[in-house]
Design a protein around this nucleic acid. Structure first.
Lengths: 245, 245
DNA sequence: AGACCTTATTTGTCTATACATATTACGTGG
DNA sequence: CCACGTAATATGTATAGACAAATAAGGTCT
């Protein structure tokens, strides 16, 4: 392997960062194709005159990012990415709208405290009759309906929520600031607006909507299930991916 | 709309992993709220009887994952996450279908080599009349139309693609194996099927479709732009997030 | 009080070494 | 030829020590 060959404009790079970006460059340029065995740690020690820990740090980081795969006794190999992975940022709607430079509006449509019904149980993994709160509200951007939020909250996990009326502050905003979570899952789909949704979003019956559902847990205990329904014409989800990040 | 099943804990931990998950637990349980200063590296050395490198590794990993923020001379602090971020996995459709245990089918609908038109230029950042390839094809799952793929390829960046007829092998599958990329952007939206799309996907005109668009670059050079259109009833995108991953 | 300098503390990076662990490669005996 | 034990090798994890860089906290001088 030839020593450092890449343009290195960033003077403030540390050694293991430099090793990492050198290797990354070779992989992404196609010089080292998927399956190619990259230098052993002791070879990197020689070419960069560093300790093994330093080479290890670079390779471990590359492995963590999924660009390379490491096998004991065999070596490190350029991974063959089977999936496009990307970091999806799902911001709080209030900041999303304000970042667009538009006026944000919020209206609570419905708020019910109740014992969990059979249907609720299908959404949230709570037991029958345990206390939950069901919320429906609308988020507006530039005085136009932007999203419908349909949320079920587990009051056993978040008792403080029972004290909130959510008339001014949206449940999403309140939750982000008050409730930590450990696991979340998102499901993104599309649907045709039925009469109720079309009415609330001021769109034609049947228009396509983008639906984002999210379930949140804290240490296995369900916290909330929420569904955002956006008019398709007003909202796209954007996800970016760069391997070096 | 059933909620997904809970994630599971793991076993067989190394020391720095244990330190990390201990801290993670305290943060996620709310015991250490956002802004809280967590123990210094030398304090962790004492409580876990380990070297500083080991404590450092744990804290660095937490910082990399975004859960904590570190400042020299000040210490390490629990970070306040502002957005829900999640890793979105967008698999190759062939593997996606086969992982569901269904029969995968592929049909090429149209293939054109041409100089870039004005419209193409809007999709792909190429100059007028530069060689591109436009492809339309259909992916089936269990003999039902599953996705429509509409792709524009920059032949200047990927000249080998001109030799492929894509009659058997889908362009997505070929590209994954042959063309490395450095940046990608995804846009996820919804639309109503027009007559053409409805016909090709064998669904009603007007049914909601989930649309995933992807642009791919290599070192700033555009490689391809692709749009997948899925019948909403057949396909959901799923994204998971656990801080420990 | 405010501007400036000094010091102490904490994190960031790196070296050198050690032993553990997984897995390939090889050689031996059946 | 195959099964099995053994050695070689690359990675995984950890220790202990060193210096560099950033910066919060104090102290001094004006």
């Amino acid at each position: 392997m030839t020593p450092p060959s890449k343009p290195r404009p960033s003077a403030g790079e540390t050694l293991h960062q430099r090793i990492r970006s050198d290797i990354e460059g070779r992989i992404l340029s196609g010089e080292w194709p998927p399956g190619h065995r990259l230098p052993f740690e002791h070879e990197l020690m020689d070419t960069y005159s560093c300790a093994r820990m330093t080479a290890n740090k670079a390779l471990s980081a590359l492995a963590a990012s999924g660009l390379v795969e490491r096998r004991r006794r065999a070596g490190s190999f350029v991974a063959r990415p089977k999936v496009h992975s990307a970091v999806l940022q799902i911001p709080d709607l209030k900041s999303e709208v304000e970042n667009r430079g538009e006026r944000y509006g919020y209206e609570l449509l419905d708020r019910q405290k109740r014992g969990a019904t059979r249907e609720d149980r299908g959404r949230l993994e709570v037991h029958l009759r345990e206390p939950v709160m069901a919320l429906r509200c609308r988020h507006d951007a530039a005085d136009q309906p932007f999203a419908l939020e349909d949320r079920l909250l587990n009051l056993k996990a978040v008792p403080d929520a029972a004290l909130q009326d959510f008339a001014i502050l949206s449940p999403s905003t309140w939750l982000v600031d008050h409730v930590p979570w450990t696991e979340a899952e998102h499901r993104i789909s599309a649907c045709n607006a039925d009469e109720v949704v079309a009415g609330e979003l001021a769109i034609e019956v049947g228009s396509a909507c983008l639906v984002i559902e999210r379930w949140t847990w804290r240490s296995g205990e369900p916290i909330t299930a929420v569904r955002f329904t956006h008019p398709a014409v007003l909202y796209d989800l954007v996800a970016r991916f760069t391997p070096s990040s």
